[in-house]
Design a binder for these strands. Structure first.
Length: 421
DNA sequence: TCTGGGGTCCTAGGACCC
DNA sequence: TCTGGGGTCCTAGGACCC
């Protein structure tokens, strides 16, 4: 038996956890650079603010309805997520952290009443973190996801927990679930399916296996089996990522090589740090550049370059070196660049890589990186940089509505004033 | 003026090997 | 007249997820 625990409007809920005074106001959280709306509470949804709405187009709505706007505060959300996951680990030893705000668990054998087990998880999470959740329970991961939607849509009736406990309920739920709400069916496929008359999850499982395989892929075939009650997907171990990326859009476009080179160095630096954190090394680096896709009249340019490294590495110095080599191969002057990124691939557990007969990493890098990480951890991120990075910190993200780091910075801890009578 | 970021999995086709 | 069969690896791109 699987359960999926999904935090409701996670980023907004994190903010509200420390601002209960805003509980009844419409609240939104914006993406990096205060670009798009990425989280909304129900009051904000009710105002018709869609997911991914560009903030500049909704300024009027924000003002007219006194919407509380927050910039992304990833230190806060990351820390709150860790707390949620730690609490969940008390409820089951078998857990898959699926994203920053959801986790699958396998329900232990000794549990007999699944609904009250779900409610206990939900209450505990709420009491310890202030984060509201929805929980779906079923015999397969995909059905648990479907159940989760029911729990979310009928919050009052279900009290946030929905359990598919019979064949009857499974069929009824699948008939209620519209096709593009199914986990794994996106906009592309659902358009094709609706065209064919497939409107619900129930319609989908009536489809012929061969048709699905021919017109989609094995993933969708698995989906059909999972929805039919046959458990195919197991809990995944996703503690080690297979790719690590740092990519950004810039507030303004620019064209000069020196600026781009600095950005690529910094992205590579950040990737290398994440790489060492999960104790991996990489053997491939992908660097890409993009012009502004929304500016139709500007010259459009999108390129990427993948470089194979001569040896697997986790050294910031080597990674930056190759990232710049890749950049040199794709940089073209005269283009207005809006977005760039570095992606590390070919990840392996550090220390398990095959050594090269002729070319290997400078043995001094290992201890150097250790010191680098330790200093940055102790004195704050980016205290130690590589010389080709932006040493004056001129690159700042637009974050006009940033909340404090309530849970991860001592000086930002809330003060509570008590008056003793 | 202004439009996010970080992931996974699958398939097709080309190049190459014996 | 007639030109095999069975692989691997790499890359690009699509579809999807949160």
């Amino acid at each position: 038996m699987y359960a999926i625990i999904d935090c409701n409007s996670f980023y907004v809920s994190c903010e509200l956890s420390f601002r209960p005074d805003l509980m009844d106001s419409p609240v939104v959280v914006l993406s990096n650079n205060d670009g798009c709306v990425v989280s909304r509470n129900s009051e904000a949804k009710r105002l018709g603010i869609p997911m991914a709405a560009p903030a500049f187009k909704y300024k009027k709505v924000f003002r007219n309805h006194d919407v509380k706007v927050f910039s992304s505060n990833y230190s806060l959300y990351g820390d709150m997520s860790t707390r949620v996951m730690c609490i969940l680990e008390n409820f089951s030893a078998k857990i898959e952290i699926y994203s920053i705000d959801e986790a699958f668990i396998e329900i232990p054998d000794f549990i007999t009443n699944y609904v009250s087990y779900g409610k206990e998880i939900r209450d505990t999470l709420h009491r310890y973190t202030g984060i509201p959740t929805s929980i779906g329970i079923a015999t397969t991961k995909t059905l648990a996801k479907v159940a989760n939607n029911v729990a979310k849509k009928f919050q009052h009736k279900t009290k946030g927990v929905f359990f598919i406990d019979s064949e009857e309920k499974r069929i009824k739920t699948l008939k209620w679930t519209i096709i593009n709400d199914v986990w794994g069916i996106g906009a592309g496929h659902s358009k094709k399916l609706v065209h064919k008359g497939i409107k619900t999850a129930y319609d989908f499982i009536q489809l012929d296996d061969h048709w699905i395989k021919r017109n989609m892929t094995v993933s969708e075939l698995r989906l059909k089996q999972e929805l039919s009650g046959k458990s195919i997907l197991r809990l995944d171990d996703i503690s080690h990522k297979k790719t690590i990326a740092t990519t950004r859009s810039f507030e303004y476009t620019f064209s000069d090589y020196e600026n781009i080179k600095e950005r690529i160095s910094t992205f590579a630096y950040s990737c290398a740090e994440k790489l060492r954190k999960q104790e991996s090394s990489c053997s491939e680096i992908y660097v890409f550049l993009r012009s502004n896709r929304y500016k139709k009249e500007a010259v459009q340019y999108r390129v990427g370059k993948l470089l194979n490294l001569p040896y697997a590495t986790d050294s910031t110095l080597v990674i930056i070196d190759y990232a710049i080599k890749a950049l040199k191969a794709i940089y073209k002057p005269g283009i207005d660049y809006k977005r760039a990124g570095v992606i590390l691939m070919g990840l392996k557990k550090a220390g398990t890589n095959q050594l090269d007969l002729f070319e290997n990493e400078n043995p001094k890098h290992k201890p150097l990186m250790k010191v680098l990480d330790r200093l940055n951890e102790k004195y704050g991120a980016y205290k130690i940089k590589i010389a080709n990075q932006d040493l004056d910190r001129t690159w700042k993200m637009k974050q006009e509505h940033l909340s404090p780091q309530y849970t991860s910075k001592l000086s930002d801890i809330l003060q509570v004033n008590c008056e003793l009578k």
